[in-house]
Amino acid sequence: MTEATIKTTSDQPDFGNYVSLLKPRVMSLVVFTAAVGLIVAPGSMNIVLAFASVLFIALGAGASGSLNMWWDADIDSIMKRTQGRPVPSGKVSANNAMLVGLWMSVLSVGMLGLASNWFAAGLLAFTIFFYAVVYSMWLKRSTPQNIVIGGAAGAFPPMVGWVAASGSISYEAIGMFMLIFMWTPPHFWALALFMNEDYSKAGIPMLTVTHGKRSTRNHILTYTILLTPFSVGLAFTSIGGPVYFVLSIILSLLFLLGAFKLFKREEKIAIEDNYLEERKVFKFSLFYLFLLFTALLIEASFRSYDVRLIAWPQVF
């Protein structure tokens, strides 16, 4: 084509716009949890295949992020938090976001199948389907339980990593799944507490919008209590151990304390300090998950050097 076809009026998307279509911050968490799932799994995996597997699991997560941005462009443009995303800001057309998402899905699932096995690839395909269709298209706009069930999408990566390395699902993989699954609701509800206006303006039935902030605070405490046995219980599987156990106890107590503070707080006080405690709990929850998975890595490195407590009870 000649230069006459260059559009001078509209924005020219640059490469970074397409990168942010894949939600790089979510991807970094996926890279980490999937890599841990893959490393702590039994059996040894070729380093190139392991790297490729993690890369394509992350790309699959990016693909679902892109599909989410295509589908949610209307509500993203209303919410302050998401207005700058490439589709609502007009950098990338919704149609292109959809195409990027679909092709990346096909590529990531196909390549994961070739690099590891087709069970892992099928699980990744299901994860993308769950996030893009079940969560984004269906649950997000219809029920305040949206993030509770939708959290499963974020919980799959370590399990996909595990299956990529070992070829099958086991208690430990389900344990890691449950840890993220139970962690998601208090994490997002803490965010929703200080994002309320955004969600209500966009008409998303977050718990804060449908049942109010009081109820959300109760829910955060309840779910944090429910999370604790899953978090600590992982210590007594083959991937856990004393380091993980001690860390999970400390982190769980801190998380419970934070959740309890949110539970006790009056809305008036929260508004006065601009949701300081809520922001703290939200940030801490990220730190919590990151450290627990790091502890799993530490336990795995002990095992690889055959350092272990003989008397450590392995219940599951």
Partner: peptide, 26 residues
């Protein structure tokens, strides 16, 4: 616009080369 497109194309080129290397390594 031409500058941005040039950058986009070279990034895409790099990614394609990286992909070829990755498939070969696999």
């Amino acid at each position: 616009i031409r500058k941005i497109r040039k950058k986009n194309n070279s990034m895409l080129g790099l990614i394609l080369v990286a992909f070829v290397i990755l498939v070969f390594s696999i």
